[in-house]
Write a protein that binds this DNA or RNA. Structure first.
Lengths: 338, 338
DNA sequence: TTGTAAGCGTTATCAA
DNA sequence: TTGATAACGCTTACAA
């Protein structure tokens, strides 16, 4: 294990040619006679030659690798974002290297630095948490940087993000139209701007309808566990909600668990709406009404923006905002009669 | 965007010192006067200097990066494996770069090649699908390679894996002890060796108990969707099972959904046992009895093995096999009386 | 069709 | 305490 690696020079020597010739063969550049080509390829295979990416990169050659930095991968939402982007990149011949930061700004910065330091041709930061000045410093980075779901500090970097506000409005409207008057809400993590948008939409809708009641709001953290706890709290109120909107699907699942543990049927006794439309939302029982981000499309646009930037196109201040859309499934139904 | 990157030479020039001196300052090597040190650091910050990882790597310096190649990240099991390994690596100052292969052998090989080509100090392949000869070629790679959950072709590479057989035996035994006689099974994906082990344990247990019935086995694919379908099929048999063992937790959730859609209570009418013990297993309602792999420990051992190999220790043919253990929760209970 | 020379950005070795 | 030299593995000119 851990031997020295085979170099191009060794391959060339074995094939009886110069390094350059070997390089040309292996990269399909320049004119090479069939005989030498065959000899070089044979030598490379025999030695198990693998080009040194670091050397290539140093020489200015693209690595065909995109770096992607995201908070974590255990949330289905981020896992899906990673997959969608990797799929889109793959179609264009790029690999995506994933790094998680555990929502640690210092780690984010380190990883970004490493990636920008010659490893990747481009960088995608999902829910960046770095300071405005840090983001500003990335504007003159060696490789293009694209931000995903960035809502914080001003930046000139291109941003691809999905709305949380309109979709949340639609979710509450949906419940109102079903006749619900007591509608609970379980928030996302407090530091998240997306969570704030979802709460804001809920609050504004409820106020506009004259139904606002602070008691119906519980603080969550996007997890199923907290959803269960918050659900229990809400459902055990003297005047419990007939519908609950949760800031994430996992949270909604927790709420559904809580309802069932109290013997409530969904949607007959309680309507539940989630957010994210993760794959599990369409497989749960009952299937979950949820607000969806167009993650596939976002991934494609992210990769397209990277390509544009790479080819010199001006992407400064570009903001692509996707709508969120309510997907009505079986977990929401008419409000029960009193 | 996409400017030239700031080089060490530029930092040095601004600070009025040689590149070497600047390098020493930034790497904390050699003796440097406080004054120069301050000047260099100041210059580096002003310019937003980031060391070029490719150049460093080329010079023989470790990149402090481990490459990890895995089939996908959407399954909670793999997401957890990635997290556990990244956590363990992080403690030792390594970053983990994640690459997904979509179970495509060619992509696996490409990514492995790129990683080994100077980008990573080590390589971790989860559920490798490459041929025996491909794996053999990795034995003399530049950087240490560790295999995770490899059950296929013989190899001399170090392997860390978790048992599926004993844990599955325990799961079936648990159900038998609860008085169940009709115990259904939903398999994992057909190509998976882990899935085969789980099925084998089920079959052997049931045969030994004289309870084997081919009709009680349904083919699954580790997903919740297929679990739901298979669950419906089993529960609508003329003589339906009173317990179902599923080859994954997601599948088990699907089975639970199916049971509920038929008005069955869990565990009163149907006991359900899963496999993987993903985080959701302890948050579902009812909580899910499941067979657990010690993923955290596995991640630690993987990183330790890498370190050993890197430091020249012989890890040829090392095989660390972890036991699987049944975690009894609320989804399994006594068999209902006829 | 093939090879020579040069350099990408960094750091280890040695000398000043 | 500081700096000159060389080298890592590769590829883009250019020349033979």
């Amino acid at each position: 294990m851990s031997n020295k690696s085979v170099t191009l020079a060794q391959v060339a020597r074995l094939a009886g040619v110069s390094t350059i010739t070997a390089s040309k063969v292996l990269n399909n550049t320049g004119r090479i006679s069939a005989a030498t080509r065959a000899r070089v390829i044979q030598a490379a295979e025999q030695l198990g030659y693998v080009a040194n990416t670091a050397a290539r990169s140093l020489r200015g050659r693209p690595t065909q690798m995109l770096g992607m930095v995201l908070p974590e991968l255990v949330s289905p939402y981020f896992a899906e974002v990673a997959r969608a982007t990797a799929d889109a990149a793959s179609l264009l011949g790029y690999d995506v290297a994933l790094f998680t930061t555990s929502r640690d700004a210092k780690r984010e910065q380190e990883r970004v630095g490493a990636l920008l330091g010659g490893l990747a041709d481009g960088l995608i930061i999902v829910v960046p948490i770095g300071s405005a000045s840090f983001l500003a410093s990335l504007e003159k980075a060696r490789a293009p940087v694209v931000l995903v779901n960035h809502f914080g500090a001003n930046t000139h970097l291109p941003v691809v993000r999905a709305d949380s506000f309109e979709g949340s409005l639609a979710a509450v409207r949906h419940l109102l139209e079903l006749g619900h008057r007591r509608i609970g809400f379980v928030t996302g993590a407090v530091h998240s701007s997306q969570a704030s948008e979802r709460l804001r939409a809920y609050r504004e809708s409820m106020r506009a309808a004259g139904l606002w009641d602070e008691n119906l709001v519980r603080v969550g953290d996007f997890t199923q566990k907290r959803g269960f706890e918050a659900g229990l709290e809400l459902l055990q109120l003297p005047d419990p909600p007939t519908a609950i909107f949760a800031a994430s699907d996992l949270t909604a699942f927790g709420v559904m668990d809580a309802a069932r543990s109290l013997g409530l049927r969904i949607p007959e006794d309680l309507s539940v709406v989630g957010f994210d439309d993760i794959p599990a939302a369409s497989h749960s029982h009952p299937t979950l009404t949820s607000v969806a981000h167009p993650i596939q499309e976002m991934g494609q646009v992210v990769v397209e923006l990277f390509l544009k930037a790479k080819s010199g196109e001006n992407v400064r201040d570009v903001l692509v905002e996707f709508p969120s859309a309510l997907v009505v499934r079986a977990s929401s139904g008419p409000a029960p009669r009193r």
